[in-house]
């Protein structure tokens, strides 16, 4: 039986108060296993981002528990939680959020620098990871000089540099054309995913569903295991 990397049980999250209250996530129970590439899909406003934030230690749920790697993350202090994210989770943001004034290698090295690793050592590691994501020779260039697909690869290199157990990608193909998007996800699937890691992708993009091991669908803040064939047909 596959070991769970992420276990969320009965998590709820509401925003606002009184009549203006919106139940963004309702009693969601959710598991993602090691060696699995899991998609969370659903229309806008379905609660995907809220759930992703709660299971990645960014947004505290109103109730329920979230265990990552057998650690109840919401019982950690804020400093310990930040350290947990830094060492155990890699994030790829929809808009990449690369610093335009830093070089590509410096951007990639940020998690190691936050881990207080030696600067030169961190940059050397970043250059190696840029090679892994196919951006050899771009290390000293600013991210703004790269294409959208290349910037996405830089963001992936930054997410994987500390070899996290869990990788979370938020709409990784949203700003990319079809081929580039597929290439990126294919690359993540074949080069990044291992038996000791778990990848969660939030996406609207049905063109990349074929790379998923499992797809979880969210609607109105509730999660249902989706019918893969149905989704692929959409």
């Amino acid at each position: 039986m596959a070991k769970a990397a992420i276990q969320a049980v009965g998590i709820n999250k509401s925003f606002g108060q009184g009549q203006a209250m919106t139940k963004a996530v309702q009693n969601v129970t959710f598991t993602a296993n090691f060696g699995e590439m899991l998609y969370v899909v659903g229309p806008s406003g379905s609660g995907k981002t809220t759930m992703l934030s709660m299971i990645s230690g960014i947004l505290r749920p109103d109730s329920g528990t979230v265990k990552l790697l057998d650690t109840d993350i919401w019982s950690l202090s804020s400093d310990d939680l930040a350290d947990f994210r830094l060492h155990k989770i890699g994030f790829v943001f929809q808009d990449y959020h690369l610093f335009p004034r830093l070089t590509t290698a410096e951007n990639v090295a940020i998690p190691l620098i936050l881990q207080k690793r030696d600067w030169d050592e961190a940059i050397a590691e970043a250059k190696k990871d840029l090679e892994i994501v196919g951006l050899k020779g771009r290390a000293d260039m600013p991210p703004v000089s790269l294409s959208g697909g290349e910037q996405q690869r830089v963001a992936i290199a930054r997410a994987i540099i500390s070899r996290p157990d869990i990788l979370i990608l938020d709409e990784p193909t949203a700003s990319l054309d079809g081929d580039t998007g597929r290439n990126i996800v294919s690359f993540v699937r074949t080069k990044i995913l291992t038996d000791k890691s778990c990848i969660v992708i939030i996406t609207h993009d049905s063109r990349i569903y074929e790379f998923a091991d499992r797809i979880v669908k969210m609607e109105d803040g509730k999660v249902t295991d989706a019918d893969m064939e149905n989704l692929n047909a959409q």
Binding site: S56, I58, S78, D79, A82, D83, F84, R85, L86, H87, I89, F91, F93, D95, H97, L98, F99, I110, P111, L114, R158
Partner: peptide, 18 residues
């Protein structure tokens, strides 16, 4: 101009005091 990047740093694991 950099506020979102600072937010991203927080998400990655930077502490507020850093």
């Amino acid at each position: 101009e950099n506020i979102e990047k600072f937010g991203a740093l927080k998400a990655i694991g930077a502490k507020s005091r850093e």
